[in-house]
């Protein structure tokens, strides 16, 4: 039974007399030509555009990487610069505060001194004025004393006697 099966299988795999497995004819050069045309077409449709895209992408990635590195370097520099600026600004502000305080103190001292001087001057002037008025008053009093005393004399002894 198995033999029959194999026979049947072999029969099905029949090999015809003409042609055969190793039948070379014009198929060979035509297939070769066809394949060459396929290579050319695939080169245009497949290899060239895709290779270009791959190369472009590689270039793009490299550029971006470079730029990113540059950027990070730059930002680091900038950060350093800013820190320095902040430091400097703090120093300057402290200096300014100190200077302002010193100036204010100076000004206050000056003002105080001036005020004291003014007060002093005012007092002296007032004292001098008082003195002058006193003198004047005394003088006017003296002259009044003279007239009054002569009048008193007149009243006491009479006009003739008093004139002598």
């Amino acid at each position: 039974m198995i033999n029959q099966m194999i026979l049947l299988a072999a029969e099905a795999v029949e090999t015809s007399k003409e042609g055969g497995l190793f039948d070379f004819d014009a198929t060979l050069p035509l297939i070769a030509l066809q394949f060459l045309i396929l290579v050319v077409l695939m080169n245009i449709l497949f290899y060239k555009p895709l290779t270009r895209v791959l190369d472009d992408r590689a270039e793009y990635i490299r550029q971006n990487l470079n730029q990113a590195q540059e950027n990070s370097k730059k930002s680091e520099e900038l950060a350093q610069q800013f820190e320095e600026q902040i430091k400097q600004a703090r120093r300057e502000s402290q200096e300014m505060i100190a200077q302002a305080q010193a100036e204010a103190q100076e000004q206050a001292a000056k003002n105080l001194a001036q005020a004291q001087q003014e007060v002093q001057a005012e007092r002296e002037k007032a004292t001098a004025e008082i003195e002058a008025q006193k003198k004047e008053a005394l003088q006017s009093l003296e002259s009044q004393v003279d007239t009054l005393s002569s009048q008193i004399l007149e009243k006491l002894v009479g006009k003739e006697l008093a004139k002598r």
């Binding site: 190793f22 039948d23 070379f24 198929t27 060979l28 050069p29 297939i31 070769a32 394949f35």
Partner: peptide
Amino acid sequence: DINTTVALALL
């Protein structure tokens, strides 16, 4: 087919 493979090999 032997023609195809021989064509490719010769190329």
